[in-house]
Computed example of a mutant assay.
Amino acid sequence: MRITVRVNDREYRLDVEPRRILADVLREDCGLTGTHLGCEHGVCGACTVLVDGAAVRSCLMLAVQCDGGAVRTVEGLAGRDGEPHPLQRAFSAEHALQCGFCTPGFLMAAAGALEADPAVGEDPERVAALAGSGICRCTGYEPIRRAITRAAREWPRPAT
């Protein structure tokens, strides 16, 4: 099937098999290898990306489901000038990554939540849920929780 999808503000016109998952298309056809495949069952969270602003497990979504949509991967977080995203700065400052395999998924889940509702960062239960949205074998979840809380303090708030 022929699909058109905007990935990190770049339009891709792709021929994909109807059964191909989004993660494979991002990695193999778009060359965006920051989206990691771990469990391939939607459990580990390493493949989390934003589709039309919502966090999804790209190992469970077919690429054809994104036809006409917008996808943002971890490569799309940093500013156009290369300036790290507030979440990237916070993860570094709070030592919320070690091997880095799970990090893109946590970054994208947190970005989706904070973009939808910046107040997420002020609610310890909601932050804990985000910090537990994936599986991390290295850091434990406390540094991830601290990083999300830290990034939320820097997050742009809508004008009131």
Rank of each mutant, 00 (worst) to 15 (best):
R2E: 15
I3E: 13
V5M: 09
R6T: 15
V7M: 10
N8H: 09
R10N: 13
R13G: 13
L14F: 08
R19L: 08
G31D: 04
L32K: 07
G34P: 06
G34D: 02
G42Y: 10
G42N: 09
A46L: 11
A46G: 05
V49Q: 10
D52P: 05
D52Q: 05
A54L: 14
A55F: 01
R57A: 12
S58P: 03
L60K: 12
L60Y: 10
V64W: 00
V64I: 14
Q65W: 05
Q65G: 02
C66F: 00
G68M: 01
A70P: 00
V71F: 01
V74A: 11
E75D: 14
G79H: 15
G82K: 08
P84V: 10
P84H: 11
H85N: 11
H85L: 05
P86T: 04
P86S: 03
L87Y: 02
L87N: 02
Q88R: 10
A90V: 06
A90Q: 07
F91T: 04
E94L: 06
L97T: 14
Q98T: 07
F101Y: 15
T103V: 13
F106P: 04
M108V: 11
L114D: 13
E115D: 15
D117K: 12
D123E: 09
A128M: 07
A129E: 13
L130P: 03
G134H: 08
I135N: 09
T139H: 06
E142C: 08
P143N: 09
R146Y: 04
T149G: 07
A152N: 03
A152P: 04
A152Q: 05
R153K: 12
E154V: 06
E154F: 04
R157P: 01
A159H: 12
T160H: 08
